[in-house]
Every structure is written in C-alpha cells, then in structure tokens.
Design a protein around this nucleic acid. Structure first.
Lengths: 190, 190
DNA sequence: TGACAAAACTATTCGAATTAGTTATAATGT
DNA sequence: ACATTATAACTAATTCGAATAGTTTTGTCA
C-alpha cells in the first residue's frame, strides 16, 4: 500500500501552498489528496473535514503573520517600528494571497483559539503605540484603524481592485504617511 | 402549474436578502429556490448558475452603495462631505453583511462590468479630494487609503473581529479623525 | 513474534449544482 | 376569439465533491 507518511502539519502546509497557487476557494479535498498522492478519505486521518482544514489554514497564516510582524519590529523603535510592522503585514498578505484569504474569516469558526490567534499578534502594534505616548484608550481604537487599513488594503491588492496603473507601492507609502501623521495628532491626548 | 412570476431582479433581491440573513456562504440554489417557492432548476430561467448569481449580488450591492454614498454627499462640502461619504459606506456595509461579503470579491469575475461598478463609485471620493486642494496624483493614492480602511474596517466589524467591549462607533470616529488629520497634511502638496 | 494503533484503502451515501427534455401559462398577432 | 409562440415552470437524471463505514496494510513495541 506504500504509505505516504502524512501528518496534520504536512497536510495543512500543502493546503496553504495550494491555496496560494490556485486560490483559496478552489481548494477541494479531492485536489489536495491528489497533490499528496493519496485518496480523499485518507485525509480524514489528519483533519476532521474541509471546515477544519480551512480553520487550520487560517491559524497557520496568523501564526506566520505574527512571526513576520515580530521579526520586523526587533531593533527598531518609535514610528519606524510601526512602519516596519505595517510593511511586514502587507508583504506577507500579498505574497500569500490564498492563505490571507482564509485569514480574513476569523469568525466563521467561533472559538477562543480563533480569538487568541489575532489578539496576541496585534498586541505588537499596541506595544508600539504605548511607546509613542498614545493613551491606552486611544491605542485600543487606533489598533482598529490600522487593522482595518492593513487588511482592507491587502485585500484590494490581492483582488486586483486597483484598476489604474498607479503604483501600489507608492499608494501604500502615502497611506502610511497619512496614518502616521494622523496618529501623531493623537500624541499625548487624554 | 401556478406560475411564480419571477424575474432576474426578484431573484437577485431575494438572494441578497437571504445573504444578509443567513450569511453569504450559506446560500445555495436549493435554499433560494425554496424561499421563492420554486424548484431549483427553475432559477436557471433567470440566472446562468450560482456563479452568475454571486456576481449579480456583488453588482447589486455596489449599485446600492453608490447610491448611499451619493445621497450622503448632497448639500455637504469639504471635509464634512468626506466624512459623510465614509459614514455612509460603513453604514451600508455593516447593515448588509451578506451582500458586503459578496462585494469584496471584485475579481472573482474579471470583466469590465466589474471594474466599472466600483470605479464609478469611488469617483465620488475623488471629487471630494479635489475640492480640498489635494493634487491629482495624491488623490489617486488617497482613494486607495480610504478604500482600504473602509473595506477592511467594515469587514472586521462584520466578522466580530473586535473582541473587546470597546465601542466600535468610537473607533470609527477616531479613525476618521486620524485619516482626516493625515489628509490635511497633504493639502497643497505637489 | 504477536498484538495493537495508525494510516492507508475501497465502496457507498449524501447533497447541491447542473443539464435535458417536457409541459403549462401568458402574451401576441390575426 | 383563436392560433401561435416564447417564457417559465416542471420532472428526471447526471455529475461532482464531501463524508462515512468498514477493511486492509504497515510499523512499532511489549
């Protein structure tokens, strides 16, 4: 029978890879099984079903994003740190469109696991704000501002929503300038 | 045989309604047919299949969004207009979560139709910028900033991604303050 | 070496989308 | 008013993917 030697981690990594290559919503267990040289039912030894697979792709992505953002913030401080974190987010999201797509649906699977996956990560941004003399309350709100922009911008990029030939990189840089200028206006408040 | 008297518009409106009620990804032709008191194959007299239905829900949403944003901008000017447009976006998106979900995937269906659906609409924001002494080039970039934030923020709200009890309305207001303060910093430039 | 758990398999069921082919209804023109 | 025709519904059947049940093989460990 020539055992394939799969485990959960391998299955998820391959699914993530496939998602980036052919698109998140094109993934089927049949296709994934083919790419792992296995029959579809065999996957059930490692995952409960397609829903769990999707959840695992999402968690996998947020773990990697966490890592990328943390890495970006070492040995940097102030607004430079904030910028570096934002760039890391955008880079990961646009280089992994399939996985990022999965990451957007936190709540399709209500669970503490899901909540914690992102809460932990965005505490990095929170930390950056407190270094900048932004009040605790304003930081809570600002995290949402930044999260909103970052997720939305990456989503639009991944969907080719920006039709015209204007440089996307430049748009991102100007967006950062805008956000940071606006953030500075909140320094020391309340 | 008691004809149901459907037409494309009715089918799409009901699908949009259903999407808002039970969630975009829960929609099936079977379910939609039930709600229209019809057998599933009968729907094919009005739509080509589930993909076209999804595209039509998306276009339907963007048309309504266009209307809501335009309405918000009449008889207002300057930064007030910009704010009003943003609030209208957020309001429609969060009050119509199922339809908004469909609206996010422009490019699942590549077509001029799709591109035009949003291009036309965001020209309202563009117009607002030119009134504010923002250069043409910066306006192009700023539209992307605002689109990114608005779509991302609404997406996060709709997915309950904001775990803590901090007021979402207040977060949105502060976000607008930040964006507008940042936008003012670009006035007159280049 | 024998027993057991893990990981693969085959065969089957289920449900949703879709297609083919048919029939009834409503609108149109004479 | 009646014949014609297009439309909009139907039933029946096919396809495809997910999922389950039950079986066989493989590897590990007492």
């Amino acid at each position: 029978m020539a055992r394939a030697g799969l485990d959960k981690e391998t299955v998820i990594r391959k699914a993530a890879e496939l998602a980036n290559e052919i698109g998140y919503d094109k993934i089927t267990l049949k296709l994934l099984a083919e790419h792992l040289n296995v029959q579809p039912p065999s996957l059930y030894n490692h995952i409960k079903g397609i829903e769990e697979l999707q959840k695992e792709i999402m968690l996998f992505g947020w773990r990697q994003m966490d890592q990328a953002m943390t890495d970006a913030a070492v040995c940097v401080s102030g607004y430079d740190a904030l910028e570096a974190i934002c760039r890391a987010f955008c880079k990961y999201a646009t280089e992994n469109p399939g996985v990022f797509n999965a990451m957007l649906w936190y709540n399709k699977f209500e669970s503490e696991e899901t909540q914690n996956a992102t809460k932990e990560m965005f505490s990095i941004i929170y930390k950056a704000f407190t270094m900048l003399n932004i009040s605790k309350e304003n930081s809570e709100h600002l995290i949402r501002t930044y999260r909103g922009f970052l997720e939305g911008f990456a989503l639009l990029v991944n969907n080719n929503a920006f039709g015209n030939p204007v440089s996307i990189e430049k748009s991102f840089e100007i967006s950062l300038r805008v956000l940071i200028a606006g953030t500075k206006a909140l320094e020391g408040e309340k």
